[in-house]
């Protein structure tokens, strides 16, 4: 079994980020899009923690701590927005929300 280097972690982080990106583009349900966004944030966290470990630099973990905090606040506000939108439009699918469309 080969040794795990920083590049392995970065590759896994990139794969996770790309899965999230693909989900944002090809899913139509706003909740699933939101979950994919969370996955992209998590992928960024993974690369930050990997950099922190391999460089012996604990400050990066503080940044991850802040990212998690901000993500939690963002999820709360975003889901409240989705609920408000659902009350207005009775739908959670992005193709039905066309108010800004010409």
């Amino acid at each position: 079994m080969m040794e795990i280097t920083l590049n392995h972690y970065l590759a896994v982080s990139a794969v996770l980020f790309m899965i999230g990106l693909a989900g944002v583009i090809l899913r139509r349900d706003i909740l699933i899009i939101y979950m994919s966004l969370e996955m992209m944030l998590n992928a960024a966290n993974l690369s930050l923690v990997a950099f922190s470990r391999f460089n012996n630099f604990v400050d990066a973990q503080i940044l991850v701590f802040f990212v998690i905090t901000v993500a939690a606040a963002e999820v709360a506000v975003g889901l409240a927005l989705i609920v408000a939108l659902y009350r207005l439009k009775r739908t959670s699918r992005v193709q039905d929300i066309t108010t800004l469309k010409l």
């Binding site: 040794e3 280097t5 590049n7 590759a11 391999f54």
Partner: peptide
């Protein structure tokens, strides 16, 4: 997603693998 994945793989292959501290 595949395109960006290829870019990341290219960059990672070009860099020297960092060993653990």
């Amino acid at each position: 997603a595949l395109f960006m994945m290829c870019m990341v793989v290219l960059v990672l292959r070009a860099t020297e693998p960092v060993k653990a501290a």
